[in-house]
Design a protein around this nucleic acid. Structure first.
Lengths: 292, 292
DNA sequence: GGCTATTACGGAAATCGTAACCATG
DNA sequence: CATGGTTACGATTTCCGTAATAGCC
């Protein structure tokens, strides 16, 4: 179970194709085939169905482990590298788009207390925030998600990272102003399972999260929007392409937010970090955490 | 960072010697030297001081990751293997000695509800319980430890395992009956830092745990006792070789348990398990958890 | 000088690419 | 029959053991 074999395995499972994975990894199809064969012979069981390529039951189990293991390896390498490189010169921050605005205000205080600090902020999807904080690429990250009012966020536990709650907010269904439901005082997801939805997993609450939080089926996306641009998503909503669930604080002209009353869910923002060896990062974490 | 290099690295760090690690792993000294050199060149930094062999600062960081990574790899392999092997024929249980007696009573109910079940119980040290449950060698494990009254047990988070509290108990300082302090109503650790202690990390509360739970220094062991035999430990205490901290429920003729009043700590037993695919294991887990 | 890590070197094994092969949709 | 995974095979590299070398108590 060498790491590079695991890596090609997850890539193949991800691509659903040996040749696509080969291209993505810079191997030949033959090498990829040999990698999978080596893994399967090592574990003594088929891991992938061929034609079409899909994980077997055993493959599914391995997939659950492989990602976290590879991430942990990356984190270990980065951790060691950091001891030799010394503290970085820029304070590198990552945030999911619906969490990023928290940084804007908190950074003001840090700018004042640590005037020389150069700051870099990357807005990207939630998984990428978790991964990049885990590998130490960023000192600090903010992620968001939905949960029952009393629950913390359920983050992928690939690597043990320190987390602390930063803020929470109610959820609304975003509708065009002229939508027939826009005047409602509240909406239940159960009434909206057959509505036209926009799935923008990195710019709004992912439909998958909503599905997981409800028993209700449905919630099929009429339009899928990738990328982290909330602005564009709001424009799509305003233009009537479909609905999206967002935290109450996000809005735009042309879009009405109607409180989501059932199921009872809240939007949460959590801070994610590793060791905080830099004083500026520690100070920022303190400022962010104190807000709660 | 191939796993076999990491394995060699942790072994060398553990042994404090290249040649000892080589023997333990079935390599030659030369191979071990090459492994370490490969790792160091890969990470671009020395990981070990030589003569005497000890981890560098970078090496310390790597050590923190390497163990969990290797364990997780083992767990992944075992997990996949289990999908092909099907459910095992014997219900394999592991327990730390101070937690094992909980199994005795709980197993009676399972024996009744699952009459055909063959059971194997292994009593071993806490780390081994965690490792072996993580790799699926055992379906279920019981571990014990100390914590503040409101806290859960702090287990090594190498692999994400399901845990649930089973029981808790007060702590006592075990003394020979004729010890001058044996008539006391309570004792504080602070008064005992300079006493003669027996450190039996796998048969009593480890001194290291006590040190971690207090600010007080001291607690130097006058005698170190390895192995999981609580009976022998109690004999050593009765013979006046030194003191040990145990849960209140453990006792023997010749040994007096005086409540440990400060710091406020309790002895906890927690259940540890993976997926519980076997009905008998699930039933046992249910019985154990219901006791709380 | 003894113990122990490092380096040099060679044989065995593994890795990956080219190319031929084969199976499925 | 075409797309795409498998197998055969060979060049290159890697890996590990033997043995000689070097460094610290």
């Amino acid at each position: 179970m060498e790491p590079h074999l695991l890596r090609t395995f997850v890539t193949v499972a991800d691509c659903g194709s040996f040749s696509a994975a080969a291209e993505q990894l810079g191997y030949t199809q033959s090498a990829v085939s040999q990698h999978i064969a080596a893994l399967e012979s090592d574990l003594g069981t088929p891991l992938l169905h061929r034609r079409p390529v899909a994980p077997t039951a055993s493959g599914e189990r391995l997939l659950e482990h492989a990602g976290p293991i590879l991430l942990r390896l990356e984190a270990a390498r980065a951790d060691v590298r950091r001891t030799v490189a010394g503290p970085p010169s820029v304070l590198a921050l990552a945030a999911a788009p619906l969490a990023a605005d928290r940084l804007a205000t908190a950074l003001v205080a840090v700018r004042r207390s640590h005037p020389g600090t150069e700051v870099s902020l990357t807005v990207c999807g939630r998984e990428q925030v978790v991964e990049a904080v885990a590998t130490g690429e960023f000192a600090l990250g903010l992620v968001d998600g939905i949960a029952a009012p009393s629950d913390p966020l359920r983050l992928s536990d690939a690597v043990r990272l320190r987390t602390s709650p930063i803020a929470h907010d109610d959820l609304v269904v975003a509708l065009p102003n002229d939508h027939p439901l826009a005047h409602r005082r509240g909406l239940s997801l159960d009434d909206l399972t057959d509505a036209r939805w926009i799935d923008a997993p990195d710019a709004a609450v992912p439909l998958a999260s909503l599905r997981a939080a409800t028993r209700a089926g449905g919630l099929r996306p009429a339009l899928t929007c990738s990328g982290t641009d909330v602005h564009t998503l709001l424009a799509l909503v305003a233009a009537g392409h479909g609905l999206a669930v967002l935290p109450q604080s996000i809005g735009a002209p042309g879009v009405t937010g109607v409180p989501l009353t059932a199921p009872r869910l809240v939007h949460r923002i959590e801070l994610l970090h590793g060791l905080l060896s830099e004083p500026a990062a520690a100070a920022l974490a303190a400022v962010l955490s104190d807000r709660e």
